[in-house]
Amino acid sequence: MKAYEKVIEKLLLICAVTATLSVILITIFIFKEGISVLSDYGMINFIFGTKWSPTNGNYGILPLIAGSLSVTIGALVIGIPTGIACAVFLSEVAHKKTAKILKSAVELLAGIPSVVYGFFGLSVLVPAIRQFILPIIQLFNEDASTSGFSILAGAIILAIMILPTIVSISENAISSVPIEYKEASLALGANRQETITRILVPAAKSGIISSIILGMGRAIGETMAVILITGNMPKVPGGMLDSVATLTGTIAMEMGYATPEHQKALFAVGIVLFIIIMLLNLFANFTLHRLGGQAND
């Protein structure tokens, strides 16, 4: 019996070590491949350079960072209110049966491959922006023009893609707020809306914030859908209807034909992406602790 337990223990140890080791190996690999470009080209020039033109030896990734951030922020601006509203509806407003159907529909969204989202965006959203949104913008600014391949298109598609994450985790968090809080609020003469906005959502905020962090991670890392609809123009964008290239999209598209130096630059892009995601996670965790701390102290 003892020997048997020891074997199991060692097996579990190996599994745990494998997971950690993979992270470390991947990190080392990316840094080993990309770090030479960073030092040769100069860290400042690389990150703040506004020209990404690998064939001419220009490796400034500011446009790519701006592209990734603008699409991600756009997705969050659209996705967070929609997602939280949907979660509140499912947990507090909808009838149980309706909620069950809607919930599985939302969860189904998570199962759609990202290339399908991209294709949907390409064939529906991009032309729609060109035909319907552009004329509205032109009422205010006659010079406006767009191909439809834009930050807006990317943001909308990414918002839909992160909805299942935000909705299901937030819904869970709101549903698990103790019923005693709800009863106490109603018994004081609060109506349903006041109870939701002042008691239930604040009590569920750590879960809601976690859902947003996970959604943001998915949005910034998404590649396929974004390649198909953002236009892949490595320019610092000036508005929502401009085409952009993202960090992930650029790596995916250019790796296939890249010269050795270009390839190293793409690895360096990977390093930047890696660091951005780390920073976002740290920041998000920090916010979570601060808010959680406020709730408990």
């Binding site: 004081l188 008691i199 009590a203």
Partner: peptide, 25 residues
């Protein structure tokens, strides 16, 4: 419900400060 208040079996203060609990109503 404003006229007829209720106190529950298990103490159920909101996860807020003492002050905020009282001024909620």
């Amino acid at each position: 419900r404003k006229k007829v208040g209720m106190v529950f079996q298990k103490p159920n203060p909101f996860p807020k400060s003492i002050y905020e609990n009282i001024v909620y109503g």
